[in-house]
Amino acid sequence: TGEEYIAVGDFTAQQVGDLTFKKGEILLVIEKKPDGWWIAKDAKGNEGLVPRTYLEPYS
């Protein structure tokens, strides 16, 4: 389980392990790392690192 967040901007993977997403996408945050990069999963089940500055809590 995780917390749902909504993307407030588009993000394109910079390196292997990053997750590309579009503004408005709902992501499930699995782990919040202290460096500001969180592990998240998208609706298709893809998992990767995302920058927390692009996310806001979804309710």
Rank of each mutant, 00 (worst) to 15 (best):
Thr1Val: 15
Thr1Ala: 11
Thr1Asn: 09
Thr1Leu: 13
Thr1Arg: 09
Thr1Cys: 05
Thr1Ser: 14
Thr1Phe: 15
Thr1Met: 14
Thr1Glu: 13
Gly2Leu: 15
Gly2Ile: 14
Glu3Cys: 04
Glu3Asp: 13
Glu3Tyr: 07
Glu3Val: 12
Glu3Met: 15
Glu4Thr: 14
Glu4Trp: 15
Glu4Met: 14
Glu4Phe: 12
Glu4Leu: 12
Glu4Pro: 09
Glu4Asp: 08
Glu4Ile: 12
Tyr5Pro: 00
Tyr5Ser: 01
Ile6Thr: 06
Ile6Met: 13
Ile6Lys: 10
Ile6Trp: 06
Ile6Leu: 10
Ile6Phe: 06
Ala7Met: 03
Ala7Ile: 02
Ala7Ser: 06
Ala7Cys: 05
Ala7Phe: 02
Ala7Thr: 11
Ala7Leu: 02
Ala7Trp: 01
Val8Lys: 08
Val8Asp: 02
Val8Tyr: 04
Val8Gly: 04
Gly9Tyr: 15
Gly9Met: 14
Gly9Arg: 13
Gly9Thr: 12
Gly9Ala: 14
Gly9Ile: 14
Gly9Trp: 14
Gly9Ser: 14
Asp10Thr: 07
Asp10Trp: 05
Asp10Glu: 07
Asp10Phe: 04
Asp10Ser: 15
Asp10Ile: 02
Asp10Arg: 03
Asp10His: 07
Asp10Leu: 02
Phe11His: 09
Phe11Met: 04
Phe11Ala: 02
Phe11Glu: 01
Phe11Trp: 13
Phe11Arg: 10
Phe11Cys: 03
Phe11Ile: 04
Thr12Asp: 13
Thr12His: 11
Thr12Arg: 08
Thr12Gln: 10
Thr12Cys: 04
Ala13Cys: 05
Ala13Met: 07
Ala13Gln: 07
Gln14Trp: 08
Gln14Lys: 10
Gln14Asp: 09
Gln14Thr: 08
Gln14Ile: 12
Gln14Arg: 13
Gln15Cys: 04
Gln15Asn: 14
Gln15Leu: 10
Val16Lys: 13
Val16Tyr: 08
Val16Glu: 15
Val16Thr: 15
Val16Asn: 12
Val16Pro: 15
Gly17Tyr: 07
Gly17Phe: 07
Gly17Val: 04
Gly17Ser: 09
Gly17Cys: 05
Gly17Leu: 05
Gly17Asn: 06
Gly17Glu: 06
Gly17Ile: 04
Asp18Thr: 15
Asp18Leu: 15
Asp18Asn: 14
Asp18Arg: 10
Asp18His: 15
Asp18Tyr: 11
Asp18Gly: 15
Leu19Ser: 01
Leu19Gln: 01
Leu19Pro: 02
Leu19Lys: 02
Leu19Gly: 01
Leu19Cys: 02
Thr20Gln: 09
Thr20Asp: 08
Thr20Met: 05
Thr20Glu: 09
Thr20Gly: 12
Thr20Ala: 13
Thr20Phe: 04
Phe21His: 01
Phe21Cys: 04
Phe21Arg: 00
Phe21Tyr: 03
Lys22Glu: 07
Lys22Leu: 07
Lys22Met: 09
Lys23Gly: 04
Lys23Asp: 04
Lys23Asn: 06
Gly24Asp: 05
Gly24Cys: 05
Gly24Leu: 03
Gly24Asn: 07
Gly24Lys: 03
Gly24Ala: 04
Glu25Trp: 12
Glu25Asp: 11
Glu25Ser: 11
Glu25Cys: 04
Glu25Leu: 03
Glu25Asn: 10
Glu25Arg: 02
Ile26Ala: 03
Ile26Cys: 05
Ile26Lys: 07
Ile26Trp: 07
Ile26Asn: 02
Ile26Leu: 12
Ile26Met: 08
Leu27Ala: 01
Leu27Cys: 02
Leu27Ile: 08
Leu27Pro: 00
Leu27Trp: 01
Leu27Asp: 00
Leu27Lys: 00
Leu28Phe: 15
Leu28His: 11
Leu28Thr: 14
Leu28Lys: 11
Leu28Glu: 07
Leu28Gly: 03
Leu28Ala: 07
Leu28Cys: 06
Leu28Trp: 11
Leu28Gln: 12
Leu28Ile: 14
Leu28Asp: 03
Val29Gly: 01
Val29His: 00
Val29Tyr: 01
Val29Glu: 00
Val29Ser: 01
Val29Lys: 01
Val29Leu: 05
Ile30Thr: 10
Ile30His: 04
Ile30Phe: 14
Ile30Leu: 13
Ile30Asp: 02
Ile30Arg: 06
Ile30Val: 14
Ile30Pro: 01
Glu31Trp: 11
Glu31Arg: 07
Glu31Cys: 06
Glu31Thr: 12
Glu31Met: 11
Glu31Tyr: 11
Glu31Pro: 01
Glu31Gln: 12
Glu31Lys: 12
Lys32Leu: 05
Lys32Ile: 07
Lys32Gly: 02
Lys32Met: 08
Lys32Thr: 06
Lys32Phe: 09
Lys32Glu: 04
Lys33Gln: 11
Lys33Val: 07
Lys33Ser: 07
Lys33Gly: 11
Lys33Cys: 05
Pro34Gln: 13
Pro34Leu: 13
Pro34Val: 11
Pro34Met: 13
Pro34Tyr: 13
Pro34Ala: 09
Pro34His: 13
Asp35Gln: 05
Asp35Leu: 06
Gly36Gln: 05
Gly36Asn: 07
Gly36Ala: 05
Gly36Val: 04
Trp37Gly: 05
Trp37Pro: 05
Trp37Cys: 04
Trp37Tyr: 11
Trp37Phe: 11
Trp38Pro: 00
Trp38Phe: 06
Trp38Met: 04
Trp38Thr: 01
Trp38Asn: 01
Trp38Glu: 00
Trp38Lys: 00
Ile39Arg: 14
Ile39Phe: 11
Ile39Val: 12
Ile39Asp: 02
Ile39Ala: 06
Ile39Trp: 15
Ile39Ser: 06
Ile39Tyr: 10
Ile39Cys: 04
Ala40Lys: 00
Ala40Thr: 03
Ala40Ile: 04
Ala40Phe: 02
Ala40Met: 13
Ala40Leu: 03
Ala40His: 00
Ala40Val: 10
Lys41Pro: 00
Lys41Phe: 10
Lys41Ile: 07
Lys41Leu: 11
Lys41Val: 12
Lys41Asp: 02
Asp42Trp: 00
Asp42Val: 02
Asp42Leu: 03
Asp42Ile: 02
Asp42Arg: 02
Ala43Arg: 13
Ala43Phe: 10
Ala43Met: 09
Ala43His: 13
Ala43Asn: 10
Ala43Pro: 14
Ala43Leu: 09
Ala43Val: 12
Lys44His: 13
Lys44Asn: 13
Lys44Val: 12
Lys44Thr: 14
Lys44Trp: 11
Lys44Glu: 13
Gly45Ile: 01
Gly45Trp: 03
Gly45Glu: 05
Gly45Lys: 04
Gly45Cys: 04
Gly45Thr: 02
Gly45Met: 05
Gly45Asn: 09
Gly45Gln: 06
Asn46Gly: 09
Asn46Trp: 06
Asn46Phe: 14
Asn46Ala: 07
Asn46Met: 09
Asn46Glu: 12
Glu47Met: 13
Glu47Ser: 08
Glu47Asn: 10
Glu47Val: 14
Glu47Gln: 11
Glu47Cys: 06
Glu47Thr: 13
Gly48Gln: 01
Gly48Ile: 02
Gly48Met: 02
Gly48Tyr: 02
Gly48Val: 02
Gly48Leu: 02
Gly48Glu: 01
Leu49Val: 14
Leu49Arg: 11
Leu49Gln: 10
Leu49Ser: 15
Leu49Lys: 15
Leu49Asp: 04
Val50Ala: 09
Val50Pro: 01
Val50Gln: 00
Val50Met: 01
Pro51Ser: 14
Pro51Cys: 06
Pro51Glu: 09
Pro51Asn: 12
Pro51Asp: 13
Pro51Gly: 07
Pro51Phe: 15
Arg52Gly: 07
Arg52Leu: 12
Arg52Glu: 12
Arg52Ser: 15
Arg52Tyr: 10
Thr53Glu: 15
Thr53Trp: 15
Thr53Gly: 14
Thr53Val: 14
Thr53Ile: 13
Thr53Asn: 14
Thr53Met: 12
Thr53Cys: 07
Tyr54Gly: 05
Tyr54Arg: 08
Tyr54Glu: 09
Tyr54Lys: 09
Tyr54Thr: 06
Tyr54Ser: 11
Leu55Phe: 05
Leu55Val: 07
Leu55Tyr: 00
Glu56Ile: 14
Glu56Cys: 04
Glu56Arg: 13
Glu56Leu: 12
Glu56His: 09
Glu56Ser: 13
Glu56Val: 13
Glu56Thr: 08
Glu56Trp: 08
Pro57Phe: 15
Pro57Gln: 11
Pro57Ala: 12
Pro57Val: 09
Pro57Asp: 05
Pro57Lys: 09
Pro57Asn: 07
Tyr58Leu: 14
Tyr58Ala: 10
Tyr58Glu: 04
Tyr58Trp: 13
Tyr58Gln: 07
Tyr58Ser: 08
Ser59Arg: 10
Ser59Val: 13
Ser59Phe: 13
Ser59Leu: 12
Ser59Gln: 14
Ser59Asp: 11
Ser59Ile: 15
Ser59Pro: 10
